[in-house]
């Protein structure tokens, strides 16, 4: 079940996840917020109970360390039409001489949605197959959404695509990741021209460079803007608001409890 490739570097080795909860013995552990399986991608480490991160620890929970993980890879059967799509996709990739195991990093089934994590080298081939194979026919791409996980070392930047098949009335999600040091993902514009502006938007906000895009320039921010504003390390940029005798800091400067 454990997928070393997707776990990144921060897998706790002792199986107890560093906070005294052992998911194998404690049956209710899987329901704890940070414990949805021990095999998903770790996106952040939570310290303390209440998330207050400035000021001294007065709660006594300051030593608590939990890792927050996204839902991990699912095993067959995925249920419903998910298996059908996965089978067809794997078969179609094999026909093209590709090894499905190389292209599809893992498959996550969560909350009634299926996500195929694709290795970025194979993204265009997979998308082309998904669009053209008669049994798949995902004609409509609803754009790309970038997500920045600074805690997911080596896979910081994710590009998430939702594909809709009008023929078969299905929606799947493709996810590719790229490290911060090499933020390149192949462009899907040749397969789905609708992604033109969506990829420019994601480049603008996250600095993900879509190789092969016809004109990858900023779209929302002014052309001379510095930085990529929707990355997690980019500040919100608010200014303190002054009232009579008081000053309220910007939302990102306030004490947070998350």
């Amino acid at each position: 079940m454990s997928d070393a490739k997707s776990n990144g570097a921060n897998t706790p080795g002792d199986g107890a996840n560093g906070n005294g909860v052992n998911p194998e013995k404690d049956l209710g552990a899987a329901n704890l917020p940070g414990m949805r399986g021990d095999h998903g991608e770790e996106i952040r480490v939570q310290r303390g109970m209440f998330g207050a991160n400035n000021g001294g620890d007065t709660s006594g929970y300051g030593g608590l360390v939990r890792s927050v993980r996204l839902p991990g890879a699912a095993t067959r059967p995925y249920g419903g039409w998910f298996d059908e799509v996965a089978d067809e996709l794997e078969g179609a990739l094999e026909e093209q001489g590709l090894v499905p195991g190389n292209a599809i990093e893992k498959t996550v089934v969560d909350r009634g949605e299926v996500t195929f994590h694709i290795e970025r080298e194979y993204l265009v081939a997979v998308a082309q197959t998904l669009r053209d194979d008669p049994a798949l026919r995902f004609e409509l791409c609803t754009g790309v959404s970038g997500v920045h996980y600074p805690g997911d070392k080596g896979r910081e930047l994710h590009a998430v695509y939702h594909l809709r098949s009008i023929t078969h009335n299905r929606v799947i999600r493709l996810e590719v990741s790229a490290p911060d040091a090499d933020p390149h993902v192949p462009s899907l514009v040749p397969v789905y021209p609708t992604n033109d502006w969506h990829e420019r938007e994601t480049y603008d906000f996250f600095g993900l460079i879509f190789d092969g895009h016809p004109a990858l320039t900023r779209i929302m921010m002014p052309d001379d803007w510095q930085g990529f504003p929707q990355r997690k390390d980019y500040p919100l940029g608010g200014i303190p608001v002054e009232y009579k005798g008081a000053q309220i800091p910007a939302p990102d400067q306030r004490r947070s409890y998350s």
Binding site: P33, G34, R36, G40, I43, V68, R69, L70, P71, D110, R111, E113, T115, T142, V147, V160, H162, V171, R173
Partner: peptide, 10 residues
Amino acid sequence: RVPPGQAYAA
């Protein structure tokens, strides 16, 4: 609090 994960609604 909302459990970790992602969702798409249209």
